[in-house]
Design a protein around this nucleic acid. Structure first.
Lengths: 351, 351
DNA sequence: CCGTGCAATCTCAGCGCTAACATAGCTTTC
DNA sequence: GAAAGCTATGTTAGCGCTGAGATTGCACGG
């Protein structure tokens, strides 16, 4: 059963002859094909058994009339829609457009469409968005992380739509989680630095209240260091969201502390790139005087005069995998599933 | 009439007590409030006149039951939905997520939700997406540019949904265009370079067949130079999509031509950043030996050791403005409208 | 004191589709 | 060869909401 067959594209190129006049409905197609509406519906949805000859006649009629099914009617009748609700924390950070790109890629050969909402990292907004998306009776809701308001969690649990929680797999999902262990990623950063011979390691971070995953990496980092008998020699955290500017300022802050530091682990690449710029500005040799490691594997880090050493998170794969698994089963399975899309150290030139 | 009132949020925080049992419908609310369904509907949509006392009673019932309207039913009955179809050429290029961010910002206080599709710069895919989005009877369709297949254009014209064509205003829109004159932007680049004293100006570009706006800027650039009695001394264009890598390669190509060049105008910032990297690699002093100018004003350009001189396109504003204008009038106005969101030269350190 | 106009509400017929069941004509099975 | 089990189709009753057109009651002018 190929995608081509499953999602037979009924809205093909021959366009509706005149959409103003009277929208073409199933009834028109049925009349022209000489069958009942229901049969047309079954042909379109590829459901039940249909005589090849009938199918062909119906498809011809669809084509001839340029019929485009009314999704609202379909949704109402079946109390479920071909909508995938997608809730993202932000669109400013390139990470989430990439997840969205993955989601879109997974959806593009299907009749499902993503309907999106952006929370700005606010759980109350997420709650409202969930309510508002649920009003469309979507096939699935995709959101990020495991933090939700009590009400939001209940709405998701009670509704029988499928739910994917992306980015993270360090907790118990409602239905499906796709992402990576940020705790493990943090540990890996520690081990990478230690292996490279750095032992005066510091941390530069951004606001954790919104970004729980950054915190998980921090914890993993500390744990990884502890495993080799080390611990952070210094750390500095801004209470702002991450950005190159904050990274630059926060590193500057950290270094003014006077502690001897030979490597800095950043909460993410934006911060690390900012840190790199600070080094450039005050003439600190990277990595000879100070090594830097980021997290995410953004393009921007790889475009620096020295490519940033970082940890690649597979954002595109997270989105795509989530969609594929969600569409594989319409029913929510009995047990929750976690999918690890992994991460990998990008050996740049800064650590 | 504030937004608060207009889009009275009926899906507030008190969540549906138990979404599994039996979804709460208008009828339930109506019974509890002791009015007809239609009155509840009118309260929710703030339509027609309602006695203050009734309104209050209905709102209380809505709250008590945690009623969330079924959008599919509403769409079917009114043959129009609270969906805004958004068609973007790409999500890889940060430019379009920023437009989407603007769209989302304009929509966030309304009950409208964006439903998205990505064309990968393919007009046939755009055509299919338009058909597929039109199946939802959206309130509006937002797409980019003026290039559409004949069929797509007809579908948009015939449907009475509002249509916004973003990014460009150099052509006649179907309904509404929001963007900037890429032709003028190209001219401005020329004048900027000339004013700075450069007179051996070359062009480095990417594929025009998908990106018509890059071509418009090129034409404007040439025209701008002509106005000062100059013309391009060299040019080099890749047949690939724009990227830092292509920018780097193409500049290298250009310079191997042997022509004396003192400034290069790039088709966009991605290409320009790549060019900058080439200069760094082969030790060309920027801007002393070679000046560089890009287009878009991306963050990445501003993070370079020397901030890139470029032309800022107001992507966020384009998206936000488009949505605001679309929602201002549900009916398509008699005459088409073009909104110029303008551009501005970012005086970096590279030209 | 009756007609007129308006505010506030109700009634009712769908919107276009799908689920569930019914049916008709076959082919098996024993 | 009758019961049972297909396959291919038709019939019917909504899904939950909104639009259009009643209908009611009340304030007001003449």
């Amino acid at each position: 059963m190929t995608n081509e067959r499953r999602w037979a594209d009924t809205s093909g190129l021959p366009p509706a002859p005149d959409a103003t006049a009277k929208p073409v409905t199933l009834a028109h197609v049925a009349r022209l094909a000489g069958v009942s509406e229901n049969t047309v519906s079954r042909v379109i949805r590829d459901k039940g058994s249909i005589a090849p000859e009938t199918r062909q006649r119906v498809n011809a009629a669809i084509e001839q009339l340029g019929y485009v099914p009314n999704r609202a009617a379909g949704s109402l009748a079946s109390s479920s829609s071909l909508i995938i609700g997608v809730i993202l924390p932000s669109l400013s950070n390139i990470v989430f457009p990439e997840v969205l790109r993955g989601i879109n890629a997974g959806l593009s050969a299907t009749p499902y469409r993503p309907m999106i909402g952006v929370t700005d990292y606010d759980l109350d907004i997420e709650h409202q968005l969930i309510a508002s998306l649920l009003a469309w009776q979507p096939a699935a809701i995709i959101t990020t992380g495991f933090d939700h308001t009590v009400g939001a969690r209940r709405m998701l649990e009670n509704s029988r739509v499928r739910v994917a929680e992306l980015m993270d797999i360090d907790n118990a999902p409602i239905d499906l989680a796709v992402g990576l262990s940020h705790h493990e990623a943090g540990r890996a950063m520690a081990h990478h630095l230690v292996q490279r011979g750095y032992c005066n390691i510091a941390y530069v971070g951004h606001d954790w209240t919104a970004d729980r995953r950054a915190h998980a990496r921090y914890v993993g980092l500390c744990e990884g260091l502890a495993e080799t008998g080390l611990s952070l020699v210094a750390e500095c955290r801004t209470d702002q969201a991450s950005s190159t500017l904050e990274g630059r300022k926060t590193l500057s802050n950290l270094l003014s502390g006077g502690v001897h530091i030979d490597a800095v682990a950043f909460s993410n690449d934006d911060m690390a790139v900012g840190g790199f710029m600070h080094c450039l500005a005050v003439n600190i040799a990277v990595p000879e005087e100070l090594a830097l490691i980021g997290f995410n594997g953004l393009e921007i880090g790889q475009v620096l005069p020295k490519p940033l050493t970082t940890v690649l998170s597979n954002r595109f794969a997270i989105g795509k995998t989530a969609v594929e698994l969600l569409l594989a089963g319409v029913q929510r399975p009995d047990e929750t599933v976690k999918i690890d899309t992994g991460f990998s150290i990008v050996e740049g030139a800064t650590a």
